[in-house]
């Protein structure tokens, strides 16, 4: 299979690789780049474990090909952890035990960050709706909603 050269900015680092056209972004991240924080749960766009950010939008890493990301900026859980962007969300998840096995957590955190990104304080129903694309089998979701709500309130308070 002919390989295609792509260049992308992954977590702030410019990466040039030759990839198979059929390779999904999440496989590319995990297998080519060793960024195993993005997880594979269903490979058909339902579970949300592979959520990553491409040019600022949270998308399913299993529903986009690596070659489509040529020229794009991709942020994964490793990147937003190292930058400190979601440190408050991570701390809230840990404090509230908003994760058990932790497999959904990277995707859940990126979804949560997308919700809170604009500085709003969503109500619990809105939070539940927003994370409805991220499957968690362990927690029953309440702790996750609590943690996201707490961060939304804290960020709003900090701005006042």
């Amino acid at each position: 299979m002919a390989l295609i050269d792509i260049t992308a900015v992954i977590n702030g680092e410019t990466v040039r690789e030759s990839v198979e056209p059929r390779r999904t972004l999440v496989d590319f991240l995990r297998e080519t780049l060793g960024l195993t924080g993005s997880h594979i749960g269903c490979e058909h766009g339902i579970c949300g474990a592979c959520s990553v950010r491409v040019d600022g939008e949270v998308i399913r890493g299993c529903l986009i090909l690596a070659v489509q990301c040529d020229g794009a900026r991709v942020d994964t859980i490793e990147g937003v952890s190292d930058s400190g962007e979601i440190a408050d969300l991570q701390a809230a998840f840990e404090k509230r035990n908003a994760l058990q096995c932790g497999f959904c957590t990277p995707g859940m955190l990126l979804s949560a960050q997308a919700l809170l990104h604009h500085g709003n304080v969503p109500d619990r129903e809105t939070i539940r709706d927003h994370i409805s694309g991220n499957y968690c089998r362990c927690t029953g979701y309440q702790a996750i909603v609590d943690a996201i709500e707490a961060v939304a309130l804290a960020r709003a308070g900090a701005r006042k």
């Binding site: 924080g37 952890s81 991570q90 840990e94 990277p106």
Partner: peptide, 19 residues
């Protein structure tokens, strides 16, 4: 008390067998 192993999970630094 919080679980001792959570930060590696929230940071994407866990080691699942699939990794």
């Amino acid at each position: 008390v919080p679980r001792p192993n959570l930060a590696r999970l929230t940071q994407g630094r866990a080691q699942f067998v699939s990794d």
